[in-house]
Design a protein around this nucleic acid. Structure first.
Lengths: 237, 237
DNA sequence: CGACTGCTTGAGTCTGCTCAATAAAGGTGG
DNA sequence: CCACCTTTATTGAGCAGACTCAAGCAGTCG
């Protein structure tokens, strides 16, 4: 069995070093500022433009008829929202807190990507990462406990947006509410609160008060929590 | 709120009418026959070729260190397995029952897709569908009950591989075991069995004995079960 | 015709949800 | 700048859906 390195999604270069190919999009798109919870697109809308996050955070979500909601992805600065070849958006998108995006007409983008192989390559990579991320999260939602999901989530955020702090402790700002974290992880907000408290109790993290993120105090321990198993320490067969 | 039509993934043309662009792949790839549970690729393997399913079914999966498994996708004839721009496979793949695939070196494919816009277009579409499918399933795993997941799954299979039978009842062969269905839906196999029995008791489906699929007896009812809510019929606010 | 694998069904347990009450922040307007 | 109101987080109690463990029963394949 080979599961060693692949249990967390990898985001080579989303926030840190925005790729040269994508950067040119920022110059041709229309900038739009979003208030907290303002909608960028609805699920099923015809998809004639897509967006690149400039600042803040955007959540992509799906919902059931009776109001249950599942956040399908968080988009941070540099990420592309609404990538699809299809006619309609597969998910709705709204701002988490204040945010700004740059909207590019899909037609214009196609044209550009035909001209620039670099841009084209970057788009494929972005699609690829979106698939990998979604599938990674299928494992979380299908097979992991609340504590494990939280640990995975915090490590993901740390790798994507966390500040360096390579002395063992790393500050991880979390712009979204615990309810939104719950909608991302398939948990009730109360469970998120409890799981966070539990991780803090174990000394893996410190919770910022008032809640605005966490500090990873013991990354090793957090990584271990990523796969600790549902039941108490049960031996491997 | 607009959630009407988008709660199930749509697979425009996977089995029925394989696209002309992709078909040419079958001529240049090496055909490989797989025994039940034979592995096609391991998670993390370097991804130098990908595969098109010719017959049978292939499962793509991820696993945790302690052996829990999540099937990320089922691939039916005509589907592409292991599409990625990245260096390594994001998931392992193995045959469900007997299967055959056609393996194409990635390098060769790149070349072809540069020459043929039709093929290129088809590949983008396939990627797109893979994303949409994965995200759809995030909603299932994060927010739906066992019965709901089963109903969604059966409808998905019906739309992808089911035989016509548009007189209200449709035969849906299920080549995979209930354990595998469980690994796909994030459920224990016993729960799958119970949920199936429950749907049959409600008259939505008939279960083929010995287990090899179901017959959709009342599609309407099955679709309703797709979103019935965790708790007993609770009114919408 | 056995041995094995896969499905069914039951009993009991547990994780995570719901409901509820309280507390702490943040935003607003006087 | 403060009182007020809203939103978000915390914590407890109880419930329930799904899991585990276990036994029994086909059906299949050597």
């Amino acid at each position: 069995m080979n599961v060693a390195a692949n249990n967390r999604a990898v985001y080579p270069a989303s926030a840190g070093e925005p790729s040269a190919g994508l950067d040119r999009l920022d110059r041709i798109g229309a900038i739009r500022h979003l208030a907290p919870h303002e909608s960028l697109a609805l699920e099923g809308d015809s998809a004639n433009r897509f967006h690149r996050v400039l600042s803040g955070t955007v959540a992509g979500y799906k919902a059931t008829a009776d109001g249950r909601r599942q956040i399908v992805a968080f988009f941070f600065p540099g990420d592309l929202v609404g990538l699809t070849t299809g006619e309609h958006y597969a998910y709705g998108a709204e701002a988490v807190g204040r945010a700004s995006v740059c909207s590019v007409p899909r037609a214009r983008m196609r044209e550009l990507s035909r001209q620039s192989p670099a841009l084209h390559e970057d788009l494929l990579l972005a699609l690829d990462r979106e698939i990998a991320a979604a599938q990674e999260r299928l494992l979380w939602l299908g097979r992991k406990t609340a504590r494990e999901r939280l640990a995975c989530f915090l490590l993901e955020c740390a790798d994507r947006t966390g500040e360096p702090g390579e002395d063992g402790r790393q500050s991880v700002p979390l712009p979204m509410s615990q309810l939104e974290i719950g909608d991302y992880l398939g948990l009730a907000s109360e469970t998120v609160s409890r799981a966070l408290a539990s991780l803090a109790r174990d000394g893996a993290i410190d919770i910022l008060r008032p809640f605005a993120g966490v500090v990873i105090r013991d990354r090793r321990r957090l990584e271990a929590t990523t796969d600790e198993g549902a039941h108490p320490p049960r031996a491997c067969s």
